[in-house]
Design a protein around this nucleic acid. Sequence first.
DNA 1: ATAATGTCTATCGTTTTAGTAGGAATTTCA
DNA 2: TGAAATTCCTACTAAAACGATAGACATTAT
Lengths: 136, 136
Amino acid sequence: MLSKKTKYGLKALTYLASVGTKEPVQIAEIAKHENISQKFLESILLTLRRNGFLGSKKGKGGGYYLIKEPNEIPMTAVMRVLEGPIAMVPCVSLNFYEKCDDCPDEGECSVHKLMLQVRDSALDVYRNNTLADLIS
Amino acid sequence: MLSKKTKYGLKALTYLASVGTKEPVQIAEIAKHENISQKFLESILLTLRRNGFLGSKKGKGGGYYLIKEPNEIPMTAVMRVLEGPIAMVPCVSLNFYEKCDDCPDEGECSVHKLMLQVRDSALDVYRNNTLADLIS
DNA sequence: ATAATGTCTATCGTTTTAGTAGGAATTTCA
DNA sequence: TGAAATTCCTACTAAAACGATAGACATTAT
């Protein structure tokens, strides 16, 4: 399941992209427009800013804005920051690899075999979508 | 992330398929071979039996066995029973559809748009793999 | 100065996960 | 017929993750 964090983060990014301008948009406006708890959204936008997707401005007239063009923001990057690994099992993760405790040999593991295919197919989708593609 | 339940269930099914025979295999043997907590595996095999994947026999010489041929067991079915919906969001699920609380219009939702593609790509993988394909 | 904003840390209730415990029921076989 | 081996079933639990919420602080525009 996709976490609410990721879901809300994607919606917020899409909203910012659809607004189009480089003017800061306030958290409250985003939260209201997307029916999201404002406080929760706050923390999500914060991590998006810390990870280089958003810029922010404090004080009156402040808010968040996209730092790059929507078509320069691939979903792979967004998903990894918000949701974590794209792979469903650490042993097939490109960016978060970990060996399984059980499983003496990955080459013989049926789960590994299957999840490798799933990862690649998901990766394919995320690599072929930027934020720009999500705007309807 | 794939749950341990699904992971262990897949491994157990694969083991049963690789053994090949229709003779019952004991939980203890599967657990030992796959490095799985026996008690936990018990409950997993139970749900696999209740969902028509396995047969069982009690008492001495008892155990679990595959009811169908491995190439007649598609991964879609296994995943849905063990892991639940294949979709990452209920609003794009074929078998477990639910409308989102937020989100007035699915057609306009960026998350919906993206997750639909992810679901289809995953579905593609699961539909093209049966238990027989997982045996190395 | 003051009001409007984002920043940060801490906390909290609920749900899910990954088991564990213990016994009942069934079957085999000596 | 009885003992041993096995699955079946229910209930419980500890830990982690999730989805927030609260409140004080920092910065900026006017």
